[in-house]
């Protein structure tokens, strides 16, 4: 099982990350990738600023990936989460998973995103098109509900 967790300011290349995850493998039958992008919310935002807790961000993502590995027969996982100011259309997060079959890869990707949202220490703040700072984004209750659907299984 290869596991890559990175928290970085720089952008990432999805094709490169998938190539790294699958290079030289013979048992991988499925690779899924989810990419979260910054929205402009109907033209209102010039970008999103992501603050994070250095050290804990990496550690918590690593713990969430370990839980996914324990639940599904994964062959590899890559999670990259960016911080700093990201413009509309910019990439914020990548979750890519490999497995022998697609069901495990899809489920693990969904699980990882649900728990990244509720457990990884990142906070988004709006930057508005008029050049001012907007509010910190409030946590969505549907994200908490999405995360709870994995318990009791």
């Amino acid at each position: 099982m290869s596991r890559t967790v990175r928290v970085q300011r720089e952008d990432f290349d999805v094709a490169d990350e998938i190539e790294a995850l699958t290079y030289g493998t013979r048992d991988v039958g499925a690779v899924t990738a989810f990419v979260g992008l910054c929205r402009d919310e109907g033209g209102r935002l010039s970008g999103l600023e992501l603050e994070h807790y250095p050290g804990m961000a990496e550690a918590e993502i690593d713990r969430v990936v370990a839980e996914a590995e324990a639940r599904w027969p994964l062959l590899g996982a890559t999670v990259i989460h960016r911080y700093g100011l990201i413009p509309p259309g910019g990439q914020i997060v990548l979750v890519a998973v490999t497995s022998s079959h697609r069901a495990a890869a899809f489920a693990a990707t969904d699980f990882l995103m649900d728990f990244l949202k509720t457990r990884a220490p990142f906070w988004k703040r709006e930057h508005l098109v008029n050049g001012t700072l907007g509010p910190w984004i409030e946590a969505a209750t549907e994200d908490d509900q999405a995360a709870t659907r994995w318990s009791g299984g």
């Binding site: 807790y53 989460h81 997060v93 509720t118 457990r119 990142f122 906070w123 946590a139 969505a140 994200d143």
Partner: peptide
């Protein structure tokens, strides 16, 4: 100490 997280 921090508010509820909003990453992802």
């Amino acid at each position: 100490f921090f508010p509820p997280m909003t990453g992802g």
